[in-house]
Amino acid sequence: MVAVERVVTLDHPLEDVVRYLADFSNAREWDPGTVTCERLGDGPVAPGTEWRNVSEFLGRRTELRYRLVRREADRLTFVGRNGTATSTDDMRFEAQPGGTRLLYRADVDFHGLARLAAPLLQRAFERLGDQVAEQLPRAVDRALGRLPSNDDLLG
């Protein structure tokens, strides 16, 4: 298994941050590996809601079907699966003066022969974790009205 954990401070109220991150289709804005992420079905975002996520990692594209398995006021957990891996994204939130502290943990459990590659992939996942920690605050700022989006800047 590969595990990556990062702590990110966000300059927005906890409730707003949780609402934004609960919609996993927003991952394309804050996860540099996500190529597309489309919600499957309608209705409110609640445990059981699913997304089709296509990611690129080390030059290879892979598709996972993610499901929101936990939505609490201070915690979100998504589990993505395909034939090669099970990916768990766990986000824990803590309100702080002027913002929110996010503890983000991603665990990837490889299946079958892919399991042999896990130790070799840890460093690449660490780099991806660094990129997420850099991009996520900017994406939240854009979404919650603090910074203009790229589309706004381009006119």
Rank of each mutant, 00 (worst) to 15 (best):
V69N: 01
V7K: 12
M91G: 01
V17G: 06
Q122R: 00
L121P: 03
R138L: 04
D74G: 09
L64Q: 11
V108N: 04
L58F: 01
L128F: 02
Y66I: 02
V4C: 10
L121E: 01
F93E: 01
G59R: 09
F93S: 04
A106T: 12
V54C: 04
D42S: 15
S25L: 11
L154R: 14
D130P: 03
G112F: 03
D109T: 13
T88K: 04
D90L: 13
A73L: 14
T36F: 04
R81V: 14
L113F: 08
F24T: 11
L10F: 01
D23M: 08
G112L: 10
F110D: 02
G80V: 13
N82F: 05
G59P: 03
D141W: 04
R70T: 14
L113I: 09
R52N: 12
N26S: 14
A117D: 01
R105Y: 08
D141N: 11
V79P: 10
A85M: 15
D141G: 03
Q131P: 02
R146N: 04
Y20S: 06
D90W: 07
R65N: 06
N150R: 12
P148L: 02
D141C: 01
W30G: 06
E29R: 15
Y20Q: 09
G98N: 06
D130N: 07
V4N: 09
D74H: 08
G155K: 05
D42P: 01
A124P: 00
